[in-house]
Design a protein around this nucleic acid. Structure first.
Length: 641
RNA sequence: GCUGGCGUAGCUCAGUCGGCAGAGCGCGGGAUUUGUAAUCCCGUGGUCGCGGGUUCAAGUCCCGCCGCCAGCUCCA
């Protein structure tokens, strides 16, 4: 079968000529590479049994390389599948897919006649350990398509057959066998089950077959896996720690917000302390937008059905909208987006090319009926405020507008202390509207803007909306999940639907470009991420209470009030704790509320006109004059520390 | 919406086999006047998420709904 063709491979700087199709393990043996579990060719990791079909660089993957975890986790997924089959019967367990994740693996399975719950996990783990102890060799085999289908039909693996039917004809079909368990798999795998490392089955959930809601739902069993127990325990501890910085917990503790069951799921009540922070955030946002030539507008929360008909929302977005309200024979909808209102403002008069770009901005509160299962604290809610704006410009202005918008987005994110974000550009999907030219101009503007500003991006090919391409900026939460914040989207649809025009130098009507953008995303989600990012200890400029004054005894209250007066005159958000409590208790409370500065005042301070400064971040800073403290605080706020 | 889990005081949680609803914090009152993360005493607090069922008896068992949590799908 094999053609005796020679290929050249290079391993750790040395060149070898081998027969095409030689298993990697044999190549390594010849090259004297020891301890490798597999190799990396380009982006693909293969194991020792996999034949090498093409020449080029092969990087050995050893236990010490992070890539080796991929091999470990793949094999553990198989070991788990084998354990399930042994526990619940080979023909009762139907396997879906079992890939690796960032820190482990999962397998989607269907078990006939048994509902797997978390209580089953220890039992499954135990069986897995048994299989590991048996140390089965893991053998790779390549099968003809017909053979493979026959095999998996015999095994009653209906999902595997579906997968085989989707494998392109030119690709080889491989299976891996360990003991009496055999599974369709590309690999890579360990040489034997005994080589597996530390693992723990962590959770269970439902997952649609093929990721499609119209397909059956399988049970997804998640596992975490590392080579050593130590790493595994570290990772588990990280999650314990992360729980403490969950914004839902912090939001309650710091009295930022509340979601009340009787108000409704996904509807946020902002408490006084959270509202102070929010006002600071919004003021900052407005300042930054004024600097960049935005004009602010206010628009209503409901609009007539006619508006949503023209915009197309009733056609495409209705399942996500709160249902209609009827008044005097007219239907109204609560707005899921601000665009139609901003467009109505644009259209209120004839626009000349001389006034473009027009940038209409609004902290616009919208309502979307999100499915109940997706709601998540402030991150995913049903009523939220977008830091929205629509930019209407000429084709010639597109490049500048996009660069300026992205620059504003990233400079704001930096002011909030975010450095670790990912930028995605989504391009034209299959069923897109708009001309080739529009798509080209827009996609180029997006890419150019990112490049000009010196960032890298990932392309989500075909991931754009049908009405235009976009840039998304995503930020991580406490446990590493990415959330979309900034979004800059072209829209070729609404200008057509609303017949938006401007008069050009040729005195003719032209169709403008419209860009829809939200830079923080929504105030709610942004706040959630911010709280997690800082574990609740917000930078001083955003902190609801910046300074708390703690008089040691009643007789120090007067002096404390004098200090308070100075601070408030300087524009700081300060208060004084006059309760009949011990100083220690007051300090503790201030610490728990994560107030950045506590000023302790007693006899010594009152006499010398000083304050004793305690910083949440740096501890006791000792005494200084009030003026010195004012200066210190002003600097911190100025630098947005 | 789907799969699995959970819902007891404002918060964190205990409540055994179906047999009188508990603790700490908080909150109210009093004492105390304190030097960098909890002073002491007394008091207050409940439609056990909501509705139905089984039972002599339900926080506990069963069913439906609501909400929350982890994912899936979707998304700012």
């Amino acid at each position: 079968m094999r053609v005796k063709e020679k290929i050249k491979v290079s391993i750790e700087g040395r060149e070898f000529e081998v027969e095409r199709g030689t298993p990697l393990g044999e190549i390594f043996k010849e090259a004297g590479v020891k301890d490798a579990l597999g190799g990396k060719i380009g982006d693909r990791i293969i194991d020792l049994q996999t034949p090498v079909m093409e020449g080029g660089e092969i990087k050995p993957v050893r236990k010490s390389d992070p890539e080796s975890l991929e091999i470990l986790r793949h094999s553990l997924a198989h070991i788990m599948a084998q354990a399930l089959k042994e526990l619940y019967g080979t023909e009762k367990v139907h396997l879906g897919v079992g890939p690796t994740t960032e820190e482990g693996f999962y397998y989607d399975v269907e078990v006939e006649g048994h509902r797997i719950t978390e209580e089953d996990l220890p039992k499954i783990e135990e069986k897995m350990r048994e299989i590991i102890k048996r140390d089965y060799p893991i053998l790779r085999k390549e099968l003809e398509r017909e053979e493979a289908i026959k095999l998996f039909e015999k095994l009653k693996e209906k999902y595997k057959i579906e997968i085989i039917n989707r494998i392109p004809p030119e690709e080889v079909i491989s299976v891996y066998e360990q003991g009496d368990f055999i599974d369709l798999c590309k690999g890579p795998h360990l040489p034997s089950t005994g080589k597996a490392g530390a693992f723990k089955l962590t959770s269970i959930s439902g997952a649609y077959w093929m990721g499609r809601a119209d397909q059956p739902q399988l049970t997804r069993i998640y596992g975490m896996a590392f080579w050593s127990d130590k790493e595994l325990r570290q990772r588990l501890r990280f999650y314990e720690e992360a729980k403490k910085r969950d914004h839902r917990k912090l939001g309650r503790e710091l009295e930022f917000f509340l979601i009340d069951e009787n108000v409704g799921a996904g509807l946020v009540l902002w408490l006084p302390r959270g509202s102070v922070y929010r006002r600071v955030l919004e003021d900052y946002w407005k300042e930054e937008h004024i600097k960049r030539g935005y004009e602010f507008v206010y628009t209503p929360h409901v609009g007539k059905s006619k508006l949503w008909e023209i915009s197309g929302h009733l056609e495409c977005y209705k399942p996500n909208m709160f249902p209609a309200m009827e008044m005097e024979g007219e239907e109204y909808y609560v707005k899921p987006m601000n665009c139609p209102f901003h467009i109505a403002i644009y259209k209120s008069k004839v626009r000349s090319y001389k006034e473009l770009p027009i940038k209409l901005a609004e902290l616009g509160t919208v309502y979307r009926y999100e499915m109940s299962g997706v709601l998540h604290g402030l991150m995913r809610v049903r009523g939220f405020t977008q830091d929205d704006a629509h930019i209407i410009c000429t084709p010639e202005q597109v490049d500048d507008v996009i660069r300026d918008t992205l620059d504003l987005a990233l400079s704001m994110l930096k002011d909030f202390g975010f450095e670790d974000f990912k930028i995605y550009i989504s391009t034209k999907p299959e069923d897109a509207i708009g001309s080739e030219e529009q798509w080209e101009v827009s996609e180029n503007a997006l890419k150019k803007a990112v490049e000009d500003l010196g960032y890298t991006y990932e392309i989500d090919e075909g991931g754009g909306a049908f009405y235009g391409p976009k840039i998304d900026v995503k930020i991580r939460d406490a446990i590493g999940r990415l959330w979309q914040c900034s979004t800059i989207q072209f829209d070729f649809n609404l200008p057509e639907r609303f017949d938006m025009t401007y008069v050009g130098p040729d005195n003719k009507k032209h169709r403008p470009y419209m860009i829809h953008r939200a830079l923080l995303g929504s105030i709610e989600r942004f706040t959630g991420i911010l709280l997690e990012h800082y574990a609740g200890l917000l930078p001083v400029w955003l902190s609801p209470t910046q300074v708390r004054i703690v008089p040691i005894a009643d007789r120090h209250v007067d002096y404390g009030r004098k200090v308070l007066e100075v601070l408030q005159r300087e524009g700081f958000r300060a208060d004084i704790d006059e309760r009949d409590e011990r100083m220690n208790a007051k300090i503790r409370e201030a610490e728990l509320m994560k107030i950045p500065f506590v000023l302790v005042v007693g006899d010594r301070e009152a006499e010398s006109g000083t304050v004793s400064v305690r910083s949440k971040k740096e501890g006791n800073l000792g005494s200084m004059t009030i003026e010195e403290f004012v200066k210190l605080l002003k600097e911190k706020i100025e630098r947005k520390e």
